[in-house]
Amino acid sequence: MTMLPPLDDPVAIARALLMCPSVTPADGGALALVEAIAEALGFAGERPVFTAPDTPDVENLFARRGDSGPHLVFAGHTDVVPPGDVARWRHDPFAGAIDDGHLWGRGAVDMKGGIAAFLAAVGRLVRDGRMPEGRVSLLITGDEEGPSINGTPKLLAWALARGERFDAAVVGEPTNPEAIGDAIKVGRRGSLSGTVTVTGQQGHVAYPDLADNPIPKLVRLVAALGDEPLDTGNDRFPPSNLEFVSLDVGNPAWNVIPRDARGRFNVRFNDIWTPATLEAELRARLTRAAGNAVDWELVVERPTSDSFLTRDPGLIDVLAAAVETVTGRRPTLSTSGGTSDARYIKDHCPVVEFGLVGQTMHKIDERVAVADLELLTRVYEAFLVGWFETAAR
C-alpha cells in the first residue's frame, strides 16, 4: 500500500490529493486516498458507485467515525474541472508543486484543500486525545463538477436508507473572497436554466421577402428577459440575475437565413422567487415582447434548484466564533455566489459552507497559500470542539 501522508499535515494531504488526476468523472485514486486517511483516523468507509442513463458511473465515499451522539457531516468533492491548456500553467496541474509559498494544482482550492484541512483537523484532535465524543461523517462525491446526478443526492439517499441521520453539516467549498475568515455561506440562491427558441423560415439572404429571419426576433426576446431587473434583493440575499450564456443558429453559411435561433440562459435567484413563480415571470415577459409576431418556445431545464437560508445559531455561531478566534476576523454571513451541493444537504439538516479563498478556482494556475491551509485546519479544529460541546448541552 502507498505510504499515507502525515495525518495532521494539511499541506501533505492536499499535495497527495492534487497528484490524483480526478478530472470529473474520473476518480484518479482520490477517493481511495481520502478513505485510507479516514480509516487511519478511525473512520469506517464505504465507496458506493451510482449510475444513471446517459451519465457516467460515479464513485462516492461515505465514512463515519463514532457510533452514537450528535452527528456532524463534512461534505465535499474530489472531482475537479479540466485544467485547460497545461502548457499555460506555471506548474503541472497534477504535480503538487510547492512554490512561492503556495501549493499549485487543479483542485487546490476547489476543493481538495478543504478536504485536506478537515482531515488534518481530525488528525490533530485524535493525535492529542481531544477528539470529541459523537459522530463525524465524511460525505465526499466525485460528481460535483459534473452532472451532479450520481453524486451527493444519491449518496445522501443511500446513507439515509442505512439509518444515518445528521444534525448539522459543513461543506468545505471555497467561500472566502480575499482572506480566510471573510465569509461563511449560510444560504445560496437558486438556479434555473432555460433555452428560448425562435422559429422563422429559412431562405436566401438575397430574397428576404421569401424568408423569415428569426435572429432579430430572438434579440427582441433576449432584451425582454434581461433589460428590466428581476428584483433588487433583500436583507437576506443579493439581487437575482439573469445571464445569457449562448446565442446560436447553427449556421455556417453566409448566404442563408436560418430557420431557428436559440438563446441559452441561467438565472441565479433569491428567495423572492420560487422556480415556478420565476418561470411564470419569464414566460410573461416573453409573451409581452413577442406579441403575435414571434413563434417562440421556452424550455426550462429540469431539475431546477431552489434558494435556501440556514438559521441555526448552534451551527453558525459556533463556526463564526471559531473563525474569529483563529483569524481575528468576524466573518460575514453570505448568500452570494453560485450553487453547491449544500442545496441537497439542506433538506436533511442545517448546513453552512466554509473553506479556502476562491480567487483562483477553475483558473489556470489554481493555487492555495500554504499558510491558508494551516489557518483553515485550525478553524476546523476549533469548530469541531466547539460544535460538539454545544450539541452535547
Rank of each mutant, 00 (worst) to 15 (best):
M1E: 00
M1Y: 01
A14M: 06
P25F: 11
A40I: 03
R47C: 11
D57S: 14
D57W: 08
P70Q: 01
L72Y: 07
L72G: 11
W89E: 00
A95K: 01
A95T: 02
I98A: 13
D99Q: 08
G113I: 03
I115V: 13
I115N: 11
V122E: 12
V126F: 08
M131H: 10
P132K: 02
E133K: 08
G134S: 05
E144M: 05
P147S: 12
S148Y: 00
D167A: 01
D167T: 01
N176L: 09
I180H: 10
I184H: 05
S191T: 01
L192P: 00
L192D: 00
S193A: 13
P216E: 12
L225S: 07
L230E: 00
D231P: 03
T232L: 06
N234D: 15
D235E: 14
F269V: 07
A284T: 12
R288L: 14
E297H: 15
V299C: 12
P303Y: 09
S305A: 13
S307R: 06
S307Q: 06
L315V: 01
A321V: 10
A321N: 14
V323W: 04
E324M: 00
R330A: 14
P331I: 00
S334R: 14
G337E: 11
K363Y: 06
I364E: 07
I364C: 14
G386C: 15
